[in-house]
Design a protein around this nucleic acid. Structure first.
Lengths: 210, 210, 210, 210
DNA sequence: AATGAATGAGTGTTCATTCAT
DNA sequence: GATGAATGAACACTCATTCAT
């Protein structure tokens, strides 16, 4: 029984419902019925707002990316200097451990698995990961520059960092109780710091004080 | 005896078929028909050798772990000294990049996703990951000891290393073309080396003559 | 009055939209959404003007019959004598080939198929075809009379003619590229001419033997 | 519960079931459930034997064409001379009126309607109609030759004849009770005879009078 | 040990129709 | 008159599993 235009709200509700269902059941078992029930809607209505189940998944990728970005932006706003900015980034991503938002993390892991076999999902997933890589690379480059280091290695360092974080998400969801508590943030920090500390010094561009 | 061999061979064939199909379609879409076809068998026969599709998946986890272990054992046999042993480990896992055996890697990523929602799968997956952690921890401990460092941090370092590797597998499958080539082995190596180098020195347990 | 006019215009627009959609998708696949979009309206409004989708179809049958009749009337107005009138009829129906108005022809074929299974549609369809038969019979009777032939056969001749024309419509829609170009008008003409020429002479009503 | 291989028989049963259901409900309303019920099978089994509902329809076109061809072959076998062969053809097609096998005729009309909008169906439908046209053309050519007439017009005459017959099928299904009884065979015969009789004489190839 | 037809519950999706606004 | 969100019953199709042979 419909009244005002409410597409965007409904779409957001549906996406959130998919996130919750998917975190526990995975994408395939997140049936349209289950998503609809979680959202308090009927299955037919899901298809009124989304052309297909896959479209909801694609929208979910976007939503997670946005939320993730906003969280980072909020923390970055308060950070001054390369070091604090890097710390803010790691806190934004690994928070109080990846277990802090277990549903989002689990859903994201499922998204990764779907990206392996659904080209449309892979496309948006790759776009998000590419942006993430650039983000990390930028912050690492700043850190390198502040230490008067060459920045060419930033890309590879960022890749290692992103891999470490994504792996932490995966393990937190698929093999909890196996890992030491709260290792991720510390190890990520140590990894980046060491990588910066051991990067070759930049060519002395200026140095001479007047 | 011939019977039993046949039985084991058949089971192995079926497991391999699941691996190949799963790498491309994921577990849910890896239909029994498709697995049977890939193995050159009939659907009915699959259920003669395995009670359910899930049992094949569980067997697959074991198979991948075994293969993985054998590969490592082979490389370790030739390695002398803590440093060489660590290098052998990293080479065994990250080989010539995670893209070297893309089907196994992709299948393993899918296994991780299934572990999130299938308790039976999670159980074996966790067991494998726990063993992996112990492996890494042992090798890292050896490295620390060789550098006369305290070994308490080995657990967390191992966790970070395993996360980095699993993340590299995930990204190689879900977001290829996004990452720099061959970063994983180098970054893992750098991460471990720095972690060892920066670990606190071991308390002088012996030697100090008064 | 403006209201009522608006009402009739809207109904006509909807009927035209059904015609166009049906020509390409058939009746079942002509969804209310698609018809509404084609007419530039909303689905809800469609049901304000028509009680059901079937009602639109019934209205369409009437519309096609009317248009068809008007076209014939216009051509008949210029025709003098039985022969010219018959020619006008055939031209009105087979025009420049049945492909001249492909959407109407295809929609009409779809109407015929729906008439097979929807009694309400069959009723109006039969009414239209009965009128068509009488039309043809009258014109043929005139032709027979002008040739001093008995007119009892006119009914059967008309049936054959109508069948030929409807068959031509069907084949033009369902099997284009299969038939020779422009055969229909010529063959229909030849069929009627021969039927008249070979009808038995009328009983000598006015007996003067030579 | 399955045993011997029986694909062909099952497929034939399913096709026959589609024919019967389609004759009354049309293709869209011939649901897989309804077809399965008519055949005494389960819906899943239909999809075991046919990839899709459309495939059943395509198979039906082939079946009707075969049956039709066999009926014609049987009648042709007994016919001697062009005239008798043409008569056999018309009897094979229009039998004791198109109402003699109403289900097949109605199903065929539905096939025609589906051919308008399903390219895959159109393809097979066109193939069948093209073969039918060639058949008619050949027989008419023989008739023309026997009357020492030019045969160039055979194609158009055949087209008119096929149109008349298909139209008769359509009207018999969609508008029964509207048409005179048994007109079709007589009118078709008259049409062909007249067309042959009025065709231009063949160039005197061998005119030797005795 | 092997076959493959058969089942039945469940899947995503479609759609005419309703109705609060 | 007009909107468009909402419903609910269908729809074609999928699939792990069973089982007579």
């Amino acid at each position: 029984m419909a009244r005002k235009q409410n597409r965007e709200e409904r779409r957001a509700e549906i996406v959130q419902a998919l996130l919750r269902v998917m975190a526990h059941r995975g994408y395939e078992r997140a049936t349209v019925q289950a998503i609809a029930k979680e959202a308090g809607l009927t299955p037919g209505l899901l298809h009124y707002h989304f052309g297909s189940k896959q479209e909801i998944l694609v929208a979910l990728v976007g939503t997670i990316a946005e939320v993730s970005e906003q969280r980072l932006a909020a923390l970055l706003a308060e950070a001054e200097g390369p070091d604090a900015r890097l710390a803010a980034y790691l806190r934004a991503r690994l928070g109080m451990g990846p277990g802090a938002a277990p549903e989002i993390v689990a859903a994201w892991v499922m998204v990764g698995a779907e990206a392996v076999r659904q080209p449309e999902v892979r496309q948006v997933y790759q776009r998000v990961m590419a942006a993430e890589l650039r983000r990390a690379e930028t912050l690492i480059s700043e850190g390198l520059a502040a230490s008067v280091r060459r920045t060419e290695g930033a890309n590879a360092i960022a890749a290692g960092l992103v891999a470490l974080m994504q792996g932490a998400f995966l393990l937190a969801s698929a093999a909890p109780e196996t890992l030491p508590v709260g290792y991720a943030l510390g190890q990520a920090r140590a990894y980046v710091d060491a990588a910066i500390a051991e990067a070759p010094m930049a060519a002395a561009t200026s140095t001479q004080p007047s």
